[in-house]
């Protein structure tokens, strides 16, 4: 179908390419758009609406829910923990996976085995590692035995401030492979000619890394950071299965809090908190875009 204007075709040159493809794309989109609207978009808009209503009776209460949430001690703790986890994990993951990608990219043979190895944790279900993690990180577990062997102090890794560290480790273990593949694809997008001419100009390895590799990876950095942020919320699975709904306070995160509010039917607080979380996530993405996205268009 062509875009119809009232004018006879003879008076105007045929427009190429056509402005729109008519109804066909909407027919392709229809099933998905319907499902997404009902099951994703509508619930989100409803959550925004409910954040301004009282849980009982549904009266409009303005910003009261937001005030209650921001004054809530549990929310403050959970928000702080989530922020701290994100701020520690994402830079650590990005740096570590970049190192992996550079190392894996440098080996010629058996590159496939290393890629498989580092992607493997993605395939290991959360539920399968629960018992193993307990055996390793419990007070009487394997890791403490190892520490005792080399003379370092033992810790209760699953129920102390150190639990945070265990969760960080788990997140890195699970996600390093994903980010490594992102980096590898970013590295392959840098034209080799750049390195060759730099080598001719006498640039050393360090100079080539800082002048060519890092700037060339800038667009990858943005998407890797956003996808890592997205995946960081899923660490709740590990945390929940290993430590339950009320873990040590160092890893009590927004996901725990929201889950508990959900079970207690605190819908007003939950919706206000959820909107704040969505805003924070969007804000973080926009901030990353501002910091890193400009490298896209020279």
């Amino acid at each position: 179908m062509r875009h119809k204007t009232g004018t006879p075709p003879a008076e105007r040159p045929p427009r190429l390419p056509p402005e729109t493809d008519g109804a066909a794309p909407w027919l392709f989109l229809l099933p998905s758009l319907t499902a997404v609207s009902v099951l994703v978009l509508l619930p989100f808009l409803d959550a925004v609406r409910r954040s301004f209503l009282s849980a009982a009776g549904g009266r409009f209460v303005g910003l009261d829910n937001y005030r209650a949430v921001l004054e809530n001690q549990a929310f403050r703790l959970a928000a702080w923990n989530t922020l701290r986890f994100t701020a520690v994990c994402i830079p650590l993951l990005l740096a570590f996976s970049l190192l992996l990608a550079l190392l894996v990219g440098a080996v010629r043979e058996r590159r496939g085995i290393f890629k498989t190895s580092f992607l493997l944790p993605m395939a290991i279900p959360v539920a399968s590692i629960v018992l193993l993690w307990k055996a390793v990180f419990h007070e009487n577990g394997l890791f403490n035995s190892l520490l005792r062997l080399i003379g370092l102090p033992e810790q209760n890794w699953l129920d102390s401030g150190w639990t945070f560290g265990v969760l960080v480790f788990t997140y890195l273990w699970k996600n390093a492979g994903y980010d490594m593949v992102l980096w590898l694809s970013g590295l392959s997008g840098i034209p080799p000619a750049l390195y060759e001419s730099a080598a001719l100009d006498g640039a050393g390895a360090a100079q080539r890394f800082f002048r060519i590799t890092l700037p060339g990876l800038r667009p990858t950095l943005f998407t890797a950071a956003v996808l890592s942020l997205l995946n960081s919320f899923k660490v709740f699975r590990e945390a929940y299965l290993i430590a339950g709904g009320y873990p040590h306070r160092s890893i009590y995160m927004l996901q725990h809090l929201f889950n508990n509010w959900f079970l207690q039917l605190d819908t007003d607080k939950l919706c206000a908190g959820a909107v704040l979380l969505a805003l924070a996530a969007a804000g973080a993405a926009a901030l990353l875009q501002g910091l890193l996205g400009r490298g896209d268009r020279p």
């Binding site: 402005e19 758009l33 409803d46 959550a47 956003v226 819908t267 969505a278």
Partner: peptide, 29 residues
């Protein structure tokens, strides 16, 4: 395809993809 609203639908999909599950938990329920 080229059509009006393509950019809008795509952006919407990307934004919804980034929403953590917990944000819409109550309303989805």
């Amino acid at each position: 395809f080229r059509f009006r609203g393509r950019r809008l639908v795509y952006t919407l999909y990307v934004l919804l993809m980034l929403l953590p599950f917990q944000v819409t938990m109550v309303s989805s329920y």
